[in-house]
Design a protein around this nucleic acid. Sequence first.
DNA 1: ACAATCCATTGACAGATCTCGATGCGTTGT
DNA 2: ACAACGCATCGAGATCTGTCAATGGATTGT
Lengths: 126, 126
Amino acid sequence: MPSRTVLTIAPVEAAAAVCCSPVAGGALDVGQAQQLARMFKALGDPTRVRLVSLIAASGTGGACICDLTGPVGLSQPTVSHHMRLLVEAGLVTREQRGKWAYYAIVPDTLAALGRALTARGELSAQ
Amino acid sequence: MPSRTVLTIAPVEAAAAVCCSPVAGGALDVGQAQQLARMFKALGDPTRVRLVSLIAASGTGGACICDLTGPVGLSQPTVSHHMRLLVEAGLVTREQRGKWAYYAIVPDTLAALGRALTARGELSAQ
DNA sequence: ACAATCCATTGACAGATCTCGATGCGTTGT
DNA sequence: ACAACGCATCGAGATCTGTCAATGGATTGT
């Protein structure tokens, strides 16, 4: 019941329909919601969740595609496609080392996502 | 570098392709990955992220559909559809009170999701 | 120079997703 | 009994997504 945080109210032109209870108090910005959803969406596929966990379990050196295709049981182009989505979402980084591309997770991003879920028990930003 | 957690190795028949680094150490189970992905997927849409934050900001009483259509700027059937996905994912509950359906968040589920992201800085289960 | 390896990109396809209008069911109030 | 309201479901449309085989670029090793 204490500080409910929240930032600016979303730029929604709708009439705010005061009906039952006052949700008008405020919530996540549209932009913040988009950014959060983009990262959640990247984790919204079982294969990508496994890829992230595999990379995380591969130590500090990171993992290359050839490490991942076997465990997830998918073709190399498909794994490459999933990795691109994870990189674009900012959840993992890609570093070309010679012939191989090494992927490593971004702990800060994952931690920030986790905090968005656990902070005050509700959804929030940063 | 300490306890890397992880549970059983996934039931993957692939040859484990030992190539560059040892990711074979283990990661999330296929079933665990599916369950996590199902919840992340529910949060993988900007509208649903906003819905969750709106419901969270609506206090203990919960929010009804009529409270939500205005702020998100979508039709009533569409909002109803999104709420169904959130309920099926276990992120919110639905309670019919007379004419209205009240939705409330499930803090434990959100917190568990957050812990899956922050525990040991990596992806884990429970 | 040549062959081999790792990886990304392309093209294609089936299936899932988001959105709406129209309709129907249950509850409330007259 | 009847009208009004809140909500879910249905049907349909456009778009997005996951997957693969085929191809090509870049690097390594002979």
